[in-house]
Simulated assay, not measured.
Amino acid sequence: MTSSLLVSPTQRRIVWGIRILLALAFGAAGLAKLAGAPQMVQVFEAVGFGQWFRYVTGVVEVGGALLLLVPATGFIGGLLLTVTMAGAVATHLVLIGGNPAPAIVLALLSAFVTWRLRPMPRPTARVA
C-alpha cells in the first residue's frame, strides 16, 4: 500500500501535476545533456569530471523522468531525481558557482513527490 491511497483526489491531482512538471523539466534537461547542447557541454567542462559525466547525468534525468510517470515506479524516480539534484546543488556551491536556486527548487519538488509516494508498511494481522 502506498501513501497515495490515503489521500484525497485533490491531493493526488496535485502530486500528479508536480510529477508531470518534473518529468517535463528533467526530460528536457536530460535530453539537452545527451544532445550535447553547448551550455551543457560548458557546464560539465567546468565540473571537471569529463563529458562522460554529462551523458550519465542525462541518462539519469531522462530515466528518472520516465520513472516518475509510471505509478509503480514513481517513488524510485523521485528518489533518483532528488539525489541527482542534491548533487547539482553541491556542485553549484562547491565546484562551479552560479545560482543553485533552480536545482534547490527541483530537489525540493522531487523530495516532496518521493515523500508522498513512499511505500507504506502493510498493517500486520493480529492473531488473538
Rank of each mutant, 00 (worst) to 15 (best):
T10W: 00
G97S: 05
A65Q: 06
L21M: 13
T73Y: 07
A35D: 03
L31T: 10
L6Y: 08
V15H: 02
M40V: 03
I14V: 12
V94S: 01
A32D: 15
A65M: 08
I14G: 06
R118G: 09
V105S: 06
A86K: 03
A125P: 09
Q42C: 08
G63Y: 00
T114Q: 04
Q11E: 12
V127M: 12
A29D: 08
T2P: 15
E61L: 11
S8G: 11
A128C: 07
G64L: 09
L95T: 15
R126F: 10
G30F: 12
G27V: 04
V15N: 04
G58M: 14
E61Y: 12
P123Y: 05
M120E: 09
G30V: 04
A29L: 03
R122L: 08
G17H: 12
P121E: 15
L34T: 13
A88C: 13
T124F: 15
A128R: 07
L95N: 15
R118V: 10
M85I: 15
G27C: 06
G74Q: 07
S4N: 12
T82E: 02
L93D: 04
G36I: 00
L24V: 14
R122T: 11
P100S: 11
V56P: 03
L108A: 14
A90S: 06
I18T: 06
G64S: 06
A107V: 08
P38S: 01
I76C: 01
L106Q: 05
I96G: 01
Q51R: 13
A35T: 15
F26R: 02
L22Q: 03
A125M: 15
M1V: 13
M40P: 11
A103L: 15
L22F: 14
F53N: 01
V59Q: 00
K33D: 05
M40F: 10
F49I: 11
L21W: 07
P119F: 07
H92E: 06
Y55F: 14
A86C: 13
T82A: 14
Y55V: 15
L31Q: 04
S3N: 09
W52I: 13
A101T: 11
S3Y: 07
A90M: 07
V59D: 03
P100N: 12
V56H: 00
P102K: 10
A72K: 05
L106D: 01
V83C: 04
G36W: 13
P102L: 15
Y55K: 08
V70R: 02
R118K: 14
G58D: 02
V60E: 04
G87H: 11
L79S: 07
F53M: 08
K33I: 03
I104E: 11
F49K: 15
L108K: 05
I76R: 02
F112A: 14
L67I: 04
G58E: 06
R54T: 03
F44V: 02
G97F: 01
G97Q: 03
F44K: 06
L66M: 14
L68S: 04
